[in-house]
Amino acid sequence: MVIKQLSVFLENKTGRLMEVLSALGEEKINIKAITIADTSEFGILRILVSHPAEALSLLKARGFSVSLTDVLAIATPVEAGSFAKALRVLSDRNISIEYMYGFSIGEKAAIILCAEDIGKASAALKENGMELIPAEALNRL
């Protein structure tokens, strides 16, 4: 159930983000979700794309420092408290979350989550009836 996320190292220089995105666009690779974690000197661009393996070799070929990371996508209904419910499953089991980001489409919302132990997190969520979105389903969004 894990999803391959691309992590790209970017220096804080104008135009770098645009270069990544246009490279993906030229190859008709769709971006499903995107976020940037930044520090005063550099940032890590994290993206979910339609074709992670292709995107990886494409960006590598263009000289970017890029890697694939396993993340989970949890589907939750768009209603108050549903995010908290999902996270409680993890906190009850002492599974720490490295980072997360989210988006919502219509009736459903997706939380993209990277945990310290992704296998444990995935098992715990499933046991508690949480819906994990598989990579193929994410592509259909």
Binding site: Q5, S7, F9, A37, T39, F42, I44, R46, K60, S65, V66, S67, T69, E98, Y99, C114
Partner: peptide
Amino acid sequence: VEVDEQFLRDRISQLQ
């Protein structure tokens, strides 16, 4: 220091 693949970490905290 160039952050090449062997150096790259997905977590900001690890890179820092």
